[in-house]
Design a protein around this nucleic acid. Structure first.
Lengths: 114, 114
DNA sequence: CCGCATCCCTAGCGATACTG
DNA sequence: CAGTATCGCTAGGGATGCGG
């Protein structure tokens, strides 16, 4: 349920497009971190305890394929760094991400208050 | 990845709370339909081509457990109908859903225009 | 009409190890 | 540092059928 498939003659549900793109155990978190500033692969891995290099690479590739982020390789003394950041298009998703975050905060309040 | 687990000492990411709750192949669509008006189980099943009764029931239960929707049983001549609708709390999620939907629309425009 | 019990099967995720 | 290759596992989802 990552990238849009050719099938699905289903229900017209615009929200589904967005959920498909951000579905994936780490994508929301990656997007959240990148909102702050660009990150290197290693930085992301460091700030996401529990993720394996393989899976993180997969998720980043998918986000890149979907046009939300892009990685810029920079060689520092023969050692490769890749800096990931939002694309212009990817940034258009941020308001929606904020809406989800806002609700998450309300949720926390509701959880403790019931 | 449906209901919050006791583990996950991870990153503070409020948006993740929301994504966990709406994660599931049919939840977004169900929530989208309920936005319009309350629906019976059978109605939902009818408007969601491809879903099986079992899976739909599961997804509805999870949404109910998470406090977003609630089902009201009404017996019509010995035949049981269950009417599903948002809870007051569930409605607080609608703005976030709208944000996702809005982006989905922009996405469609972007897709055709590149 | 609705929910539940069974069985199965695939996609996503994770651990490890190895190249540029 | 970044990415790839293998292998394995488990949870989510799907098909079918019974019972309330």
């Amino acid at each position: 349920m990552t990238s849009p498939r050719p099938d699905e003659k289903l229900l017209h549900c615009p929200a589904l497009v967005a959920t498909r793109v951000i579905a994936g155990k780490w994508k929301t978190r990656v997007l959240w971190l990148l909102r702050e500033r660009p990150h290197h692969f290693g930085e992301l891995k460091g700030r996401l305890p529990g993720v394996s290099a393989k899976v993180l690479a997969e998720q980043l590739q998918q986000l890149e394929r979907d046009g939300l982020i892009q990685g810029q390789a920079e060689l520092r003394g023969g050692v490769s760094f890749v800096l990931y950041d939002y694309t212009r298009y990817g940034r258009t998703l941020i308001p929606a991400l904020d809406a989800l975050g806002t609700w998450g905060l309300e949720h926390a309040a509701w959880e403790t208050g019931r």
